[in-house]
């Protein structure tokens, strides 16, 4: 069998994609984070505060 690649493709740069990418990088993989828009962050970056702690979302 061909050798496995140590790189991972993550599609979508919202909170789920970013967290996946960060964890994978920490676990020892190289990550391509592919985002449709010009910036990562997704919808969460639009939120002013989050429930219930009203933390800033960025």
């Amino acid at each position: 069998m061909a050798k496995k690649s140590g790189k991972v493709l993550v599609v979508g740069g919202g909170i789920a994609g970013i967290q996946t990418a960060l964890d994978l990088a920490e676990l020892g993989y190289y990550v391509y984070l592919v985002e449709k828009k010009a910036t990562i962050g997704g919808v969460m970056a639009k939120l002013d505060k989050t429930f219930p702690t009203n933390d800033c979302s960025i």
Binding site: G13, Y29, Y30, V34, A38
Partner: peptide, 13 residues
């Protein structure tokens, strides 16, 4: 994520 050397961000992609 922007600073990690192991994450390559490809935007408008």
């Amino acid at each position: 994520a922007g600073r990690s050397p192991n994450i390559e961000i490809l935007t408008l992609a």
